[in-house]
């Protein structure tokens, strides 16, 4: 079970990294509310990353690291 969670979180981390830059907007110069659209995507994505990190810290912190069962 913990292997599934480990792989799942690793995938989440990779997706967070991969889409921090909106590659699909490459070359797009559109603006909204005074800033480039790609910058808004980035700001939103970072906020999302913060939330995801907080969820990880609450639910699965220690995954893959606390490998040894506590003694006693």
């Amino acid at each position: 079970m913990s292997t599934v969670r480990l792989v799942g979180w690793a995938v989440v981390a990779l997706v967070l990294m991969a889409l921090a830059v909106p590659w699909f907007l490459w070359g797009d110069a559109g603006t909204a509310f005074g800033l480039p659209v790609w910058l808004w995507w980035h700001v939103g994505w970072m906020a999302l990353a913060s939330v995801v990190f907080a969820v990880f810290a609450r639910t699965d912190w220690g995954l893959g690291i606390e490998e040894v069962k506590p003694r006693g």
Partner: peptide
């Protein structure tokens, strides 16, 4: 850890 991305932005 969780506050990090927000601070950077």
């Amino acid at each position: 850890f969780a506050l990090w991305p927000v601070l950077v932005v």
